Computed example of a mutant assay.
Amino acid sequence: MTVGAHSLPNELNRDATFYVAGHRGLAGSAIVRKLQSVGFENIVGKTSKELDLKNREAVFEFFAEVKPRYVVLAAAKVGGILANSTYPVDFLSDNMRIQVNVLDAAREAEVERLLFLGSSCIYPKWAEQPIREESLLTGHLEPTNEAYAIAKIAGILHVQAVRRQFGLPWISAMPTNLYGPNDNFSPSGSHVLPALIRRYEEAAASDAPAVTNWGTGSPRREFLHADDMADACLHLLENYDGPDQINVGSGTDVTIREIAETVASVVGFTGETEWDTTKPDGTPQKLLDVSKLAQMGWTSKIGLREGVERTVAWYRDHAGALRK
């Protein structure tokens, strides 16, 4: 049985050309590691200096020359609440151009299998917890990152449109909060977990008596190690063919206070943790319903403490080269 001229999902050909857009980022680098670990020999990645994905002509030329059989679109302009709320035009415009160029060029090149990587921020701010895939477009978005979310929603709809119009078996995956090697640990641009790792690591190194975190520590968040996410993405590419985006997560969440305690313990910080309750907490809970992925035979394998230990070790090995 085929979709258009292409086979339905099965084991991907390890000798085929596989392009990972965003191969040096948190998600993309994890996907490259996963592909290498299972025997893919021809993985292609280009830095933004080598190939500006916002340059439509350059992207089309790249696809025409390389002719990848498989693609994961993990390239995106990303950032935390501060960056998203300060530069909404950048987050909307850059991400829309990246997606439209890559998806259009991949369609013209008749890429056989493509996975578009989104973000859990696509779901409504007050979606019922845990958040099911069907919650997409059923309510208002979180205002602080709605520009980024709208771009990612457009990517999902673009993939669905390609399936309908051209019959290509492309899919989308929506990971929860990711962390791990090659994360952004900068004070102004990082998400909560890498920010906590840097904060506690610096406090431990300087023998600071206390660390102050924003809010009450009560909001609940789900975290997934990037290597787990990459494993799930390959599983989806080889086992799933459908128009709906699939949630990728651990299926469990912890409070911000609990994750802070875990980070403090891993880095060896023995001082006090204080909470500045004049600062906002954000959404009370954000947990994905991952039952569809579980029904396909995949569940996360890296526990939170193990994942934090791995990430702290990577951070220490690369601290000198990280963004300030």
Rank of each mutant, 00 (worst) to 15 (best):
N10I: 09
E11A: 13
F18S: 07
F18Y: 15
L26S: 02
G28S: 14
R33H: 12
V38F: 13
E41T: 15
E50H: 09
L53I: 05
E57A: 15
V59E: 13
V59K: 02
F62M: 14
F63N: 09
A64G: 14
K67W: 08
Y70V: 09
Y70N: 05
V71F: 01
V72D: 13
M96T: 08
M96Q: 07
R97Y: 02
I98R: 04
I98V: 12
Q99D: 13
L103N: 02
L103S: 05
A105I: 08
E108N: 06
E110L: 11
I122N: 11
I122V: 15
K125Y: 14
K125G: 09
Q129M: 05
P130G: 09
I131C: 02
I131E: 01
E133C: 06
L137S: 13
T138V: 10
H140W: 12
L141P: 04
P143T: 03
P143L: 03
T144E: 01
E146Y: 10
A147K: 04
G155N: 05
Q160M: 15
V162M: 05
R163P: 10
P169C: 10
W170A: 08
I171R: 01
S172K: 05
P175F: 11
T176E: 12
N177Q: 11
L178S: 09
P181T: 02
F185E: 14
F185P: 14
G189P: 13
H191N: 12
A195R: 00
L196K: 00
R198A: 15
A203N: 04
P209S: 09
T212N: 01
G217F: 07
R220N: 07
R220G: 06
R220I: 12
R221L: 12
A226H: 10
A226Y: 13
D227I: 03
D231T: 10
A232K: 00
L234Q: 07
D244W: 10
Q245M: 11
Q245K: 03
Q245V: 13
I246Y: 04
V248Q: 00
V248I: 15
I259K: 00
V263Q: 08
A264L: 13
A264S: 15
V266Q: 10
F269N: 11
G271T: 11
G271I: 11
G271K: 09
E274S: 08
E274R: 15
T278Y: 03
K279H: 04
P284M: 11
K286F: 07
L287N: 01
L288E: 07
K292T: 10
L293Q: 00
W298Y: 14
T299H: 09
S300L: 04
S300W: 01
K301Q: 15
L304I: 06
T311M: 06
V312T: 08
W314Y: 14
D317Y: 13
G320V: 06
